[in-house]
Simulated assay, not measured.
Amino acid sequence: MLQESSNIFIKKSETETDLFVINGMQFKSRLMIGTGKYANLKDAKQSIAVSQASIVTVAIRRAQSVKMAGKSNLIDGLDWKSLWLLPNTAGCATVDEAIRVALMGREMCKRLGQTHNNFIKLEVIPDCKNLFPDPIGTLKAAEFLIKKDFTVLPYINSDPILAKQLEEIGCSTVMPLGSPIGSGQGINNIENLRIIIDNAKIPVIIDAGIGTSSDATTVMEIGADAVLVNSAIAQASYPQVMASAMQLAVKSGRQAYLSGRMKQKRNAEASSPIIGISH
């Protein structure tokens, strides 16, 4: 249990048994938030606060370019004692690029005081049109970063075989997309996601394509461990309101999953008995 960012984590005595754990770290919220595409820093900060997220992901390349341009940087405006930084390698098209940016991300965590934060959201995306991740490049980069003691959270297509391979080499989660990144199309591949979830012994975090709160609820109801949301909040007419909706949706979906929903039936079945009713 890390002490430097203890506000993020759950004390065991304060919880039930349903914990969200990544590589031994316990987090309060199953909603993870991205930081891109907001109209301004105020909307971003307020949305993150309303979402009650514990984990916030930041594109290292974008953060570096903003800083070099001398512009206001969201990283400098957030309280990293109550949030956990998940650096990501967005914008990297090759294995070498992703590895280099991951190392930069680990140094950024140290500068923010999270000295034991080795988390990295791994993205290797050579497809600049459709933004589908490279499965072979992701596997190679993940293998290298795991050997360098990173906690690797790889972003992948909804490929059950690749998801299992990444788990077997030591990834701490898998992050399959629900539909193309930034599209807001919702969940287009739910059967593949079910297979990934059913086969996984590590957390499955649905990332990309979520457009509204019902999408988040849908994947949480089938057993996803968490969701990562960016565009659906940042590009909503009222981002803070959508952030609140997502927070409620994730909690609701998780509770529905844990409740064990009723079996679906072909025919109607009366909820009240007819025996003993006088006619």
Rank of each mutant, 00 (worst) to 15 (best):
G36F: 03
K67E: 15
A44P: 00
K45V: 07
V56Y: 01
G34V: 03
A39S: 11
Q64K: 14
Q64C: 01
F27T: 11
M32G: 01
Q52A: 07
D96H: 05
F27R: 08
D18L: 06
G70Q: 07
S72G: 01
L78W: 04
R61K: 14
M25L: 15
K42E: 14
C92F: 02
G34K: 02
N73E: 02
L74I: 13
A63E: 15
M32E: 00
I75F: 08
I60H: 01
A69I: 02
A90T: 10
A63T: 14
P87D: 12
V56R: 14
G91H: 08
A90H: 05
V50Y: 14
L78V: 04
S47F: 03
S29G: 08
V50H: 08
I55G: 03
A63I: 13
D18S: 07
M32W: 12
I33L: 06
K45I: 11
G34A: 04
W84T: 12
D18I: 12
S82L: 02
D18E: 13
V95L: 00
G77W: 06
T57P: 00
S54W: 08
S72R: 13
M25T: 11
A90K: 08
T94F: 01
D43Y: 09
K67W: 08
F27S: 09
K67H: 11
S65A: 14
N88R: 04
T94S: 07
K67Y: 11
T57R: 10
R62K: 10
I33R: 01
W80C: 04
V21M: 07
L86Q: 12
I22E: 04
C92G: 07
D96K: 12
L74H: 05
S47Q: 01
D76R: 08
G24V: 08
N40C: 13
R62I: 10
Y38T: 00
S65M: 15
T89V: 10
T35N: 04
K71R: 06
A93I: 10
A69L: 15
A69Q: 14
L19N: 05
Q64R: 13
I48N: 01
I60D: 03
M68S: 09
S54R: 07
M32Y: 12
T94L: 04
S51Q: 12
A59V: 03
A90S: 13
L85D: 10
A39Y: 05
Y38G: 03
V66D: 02
S82K: 15
R30M: 11
D79C: 13
F27W: 15
N73M: 00
S82D: 13
L83I: 10
S54H: 12
D43Q: 12
G70K: 07
I22G: 06
N40M: 00
G34P: 10
W80L: 11
L83T: 13
I33S: 12
A90C: 06
M25S: 12
D96M: 06
D96S: 14
T35H: 04
W80P: 09
Y38E: 02
G91I: 09
V56H: 06
S47G: 10
D43F: 09
G36L: 10
L41C: 01
D76C: 02
R61E: 13
S51P: 07
R30H: 09
G77F: 10
Y38R: 00
Q52E: 15
